[in-house]
Amino acid sequence: MIAQNDRKLNINIILIVAALIIFILLPNYISGYYTRIFTAIFMYATIAQCINLMSGYMGYLPFGHVMFFGIGAYISAILMKTGLPVFVAIPAACFCAIVISIILGFPVLRLRGHYFAIATIGMNGAIMTVVQNATEITGGARGTTFPIITVPPAVVYKYFYLAMFGLMVITSLVMNMIVNSKFGFGIRSIKANEDAANSMGINTTFTKVSTWAIAAMFTSIAGGLYGYWMSFIAPDEVFDLMFITNSIIMMLIGGAGTILGPIFGAFIVETVSEVAWSGFMQYHLAALGIATIIIVFFIPRGLIGTITDKMRNRRIKLSKKTEVTNV
């Protein structure tokens, strides 16, 4: 039994390393167009991973979570304009996002269900309006630019590809570590029954706020990278709730409450919407809508969720069988 587990672990590690190598080398062999699509996939997978930690594992749907994406992008832009290098600006923006998430988290995470989701939307809207109106600092509603990168575009695309890929991998590894830790059991207990969790010794407030801070941290890094990559950002773009609705759809398709789910979901949705855009542009919104409804109806547990369910059921059946033969 133990040997079997070891072998399984080894196979998993080999698969992961192989995937890492393939994706690191990939941009050398594909065009700039595909490099960009992959970069977007990695970015979405990162955000979806954060939404998944909050919603899939903890049961709190942070609909306005895009606020941290926008905060990450804007603070990075402002700092880089003052001459700071990117590897200082993005961590600083990330730190600000964490602080803001903690300050907002204490009051807003007292709300449950619908109320929490809506309050975060309200906060996102309020922050966006502040950014739109603080023209001297943020450039106002017209947006702001990042310093120009003085390397050829092809090389730039490759850099951002690798940076986003790295971010996605680190985010997923950290999430995997969290959900399998003691802290992760606390998170899952909150989704299962918050009152019972509290009476069982779980500091629910601390757990909720820290979880939100972790989600804010990775989302803000994605925002900073996105801004630098686009080199121009505007408030109604980086605070657009569409980022979150897309990420939720990705999480649902891949499987909420699984680590691989958001990654697969991002691949599927981005690929499909790319095809929809190029194939039948006029209908792409409706196509996305109909596809979402179909998925929610037919695989509510998502791709990865459905597969793991099947495997679990088979294992239980098998163990029952061996029990019978033993008797």
């Binding site: 059991f185 899952r188 207990s189 029954n193 019972a196 069982m200 779980i202």
Partner: peptide, 21 residues
């Protein structure tokens, strides 16, 4: 008040993980 979505073992595990500081 069971912790929904978890197994029986996990429910008890949560108690033993967090029960005492």
């Amino acid at each position: 008040k069971p912790l929904q979505g978890m197994t029986v073992e996990e429910n008890i595990l949560v108690g033993s993980l967090f029960g005492r500081s």
